[in-house]
Design a protein around this nucleic acid. Structure first.
Length: 290
DNA sequence: CATTTCACCTGGTGGC
DNA sequence: TGCCACCAGGTGAAAT
């Protein structure tokens, strides 16, 4: 479901509402566990910890966690503000899969179907993970035993022209498939792959390694623009995406090709075509994209 | 090794 | 109304 702009919107919203708060209790439900870390170990690790900051890397939401309240941290007499400046000692990593939501609610808000995690906070708020298709994943990691989590690929918002060109050099797969590969770039999914290729005027089936330097640079700039525009509009709500408060995004109104099969291209009126590439529905304008 | 296909899940939609 | 096929924002394991 959510790609970079949606995950960024959710992470910002959650950060605004829970930063500096403390986890009191954690509940995990559901038959099979959509968890990378077993639920019991995850709950034990989370309970009592402060939330220092929530941010995004790739399509992952990372909650930076401080020490648990009953540990010797208090001996330093640290106020919450001091604590926020301290180093994180653990992380809670949320991947939303296709249909995952991370919501900040009040404890008495109706519990949606497919709610797999409820995290109650000292402020009285609650953080909820809801995911009908259960493709999402929750992971807890101690930073004493692991390094901080970093998405495997380059960040599409800050990648340089030289690095972008190097990432696709010599690759014999379709450029659309390459854009979707999270080990190359982290954060691009089906919507923004199609939309950026349209804006760059490149056909999705072109081989990545055959694109000219100029085409690659055009694609890098188009991708950055699309992602930034989408973040500005709170992401794309195609069916059920909502932010941390349950509000929909508006970038779906700006889509030029995604899910517009048969409709006239907004630039040249040619009907938009659909094909399946890398197992994903792929939309493009046969006239504008070469 | 690089690339492609498919299984993993539930729910919504549109055709008959 | 019911049934069925198909579609969906993602990802890693298995196959090629």
């Amino acid at each position: 479901m959510p790609e970079l702009p949606e995950v960024e919107t959710i992470a910002r919203g959650v950060n605004l509402r829970v930063r500096g708060d403390r986890i009191v209790e954690v509940w995990f439900g559901g038959k099979r566990e959509p968890f990378k870390t077993p639920a019991a170990r995850q709950a034990k690790g989370l309970e009592g910890r402060s939330i220092l900051e929530v941010h995004r890397t790739g399509k992952h939401i990372v909650c930076e966690l401080g020490a648990a309240a009953d540990r010797p941290l208090d001996q330093r007499g640290g106020s919450p503000l001091v604590e926020c400046a301290s180093e994180p000692s653990a992380q809670w990593i949320v991947h939303l899969g296709m249909t995952g939501r991370l919501l900040v609610t009040t404890p008495d808000a109706p519990v949606a179907p497919h709610t797999h995690a409820r995290v109650s906070l000292m402020s009285g708020r609650e953080l909820r993970f809801v995911d009908p298709r259960r493709f999402g994943r929750l992971e807890f990691r101690e930073l004493s035993r692991n390094t901080g989590f970093l998405a495997p690929g380059a960040d599409p918002l800050s990648v340089t022209a030289a690095e972008f060109a190097r990432l696709f050099h010599g690759r014999r797969l379709a450029i659309k498939a390459a854009l979707l590969n999270q080990k190359i770039l982290s954060g691009v999914g089906n919507i923004y792959a199609d939309e950026s290729l349209f804006r760059a005027g490149i056909r999705p089936r072109r081989l990545a390694g055959r694109l000219s330097r100029a085409e690659l640079e055009g694609l890098r700039l188009a991708l950055g623009e699309v992602l930034r525009d989408a973040i500005r509009l709170g992401g794309s709500s195609v069916s059920d995406y909502v932010d941390a408060e349950g509000a929909r995004g508006f970038f779906q109104l700006e889509h030029c090709v995604y899910q517009r099969t048969g409709l006239p291209c907004l630039r040249c009126q040619t009907p938009i075509r659909r094909l399946v590439l890398a197992g994903r529905g792929t939309h493009y304008c046969p006239q504008c994209q070469r």
